[in-house]
Design a protein around this nucleic acid. Structure first.
Lengths: 138, 138
DNA sequence: CAGGATCCGTGGGGATACTG
DNA sequence: CAGTATCCCCACGGATCCTG
């Protein structure tokens, strides 16, 4: 039994098109959006850094290296929007904002680590396949 | 210890920019590319269908519903290029092509199912976070 | 049946400048 | 410090037509 819709997977789940009442919301769409989230360019890296403990914005910016400030912001907003990270503002001067993983974020991060383990196990297979592809392509 | 590079994650790993000699290839880049793969719009769905058994092209096309032929082709090529699925051509008339998961593909699919399980467990959390976001936005 | 070739719109993401 | 605002590029994905 598939976890994705028969007719229109994902659709505009990330835009919240029809705003269903949570119980009507298809888990399939959520799975797809979550896969898309951890599959985007930086979310997984950010989560992995946050797994070590709460971090501040520019701290993350440095840890996640060549990420742009604009992209880091939108990445964090997206993660926050799915309840994977929390954003805590300390009203000091200068402002201090701390980002941290939630329980769900931590659980999802564990799965990401499984992908890392998978890569460790199948690195040879992947590389062989890529080489073969390169081989037949010229 | 992070599974991604400090300086330049992903980079152009998917293009095979410098064609490293397999041992020099950073596993980190591979993790990112794999996450990107299962995070794209259709790969996970295709793999889930293939998990039930080998399928032919147009068979998949119907199962994965509104996917375009062009996109299904490129998705399958990408999966094949990473050694996640095999493509077997039977020289009949009309031509018959069968796609199937490899061992690594099956293992990766298992992880994807974990994400589905995660979603099942945290669906409420995710929805609550999304509602809250919607709440403060509108 | 299983694609290849072509055209095109959308938006993810990079660079840069500015602000409370 | 922690963002917001703008501009821009191009890869992803959709639509359509054509073929061995």
């Amino acid at each position: 039994m598939p976890w994705y819709p028969e007719g229109n997977p994902m659709a505009d789940a990330r835009k919240g098109a029809a705003s269903p009442t949570a119980e009507e919301l298809d888990p399939c769409d959520v799975v797809r959006s979550i896969l898309g989230r951890v599959g985007d360019k930086w979310s997984a890296v950010v989560m992995d850094e946050l797994a070590a403990g709460p971090r501040r914005f520019n701290e993350l910016r440095r840890l996640v290296s060549p990420i742009t400030q604009r992209v880091l912001t939108s990445t964090l907003r997206a993660l926050e929007g799915d309840g994977l990270v929390t954003r805590t503002v300390h009203p000091t001067i200068p402002p201090q904002v701390e980002y941290a993983l939630t329980d769900s974020g931590r659980a999802l991060h564990a799965i990401i680590k499984n992908v890392a383990a998978w890569t460790d196990a199948y690195l040879g297979t992947v590389h062989a396949a890529r080489s073969a592809r390169k081989d037949s392509a010229g």
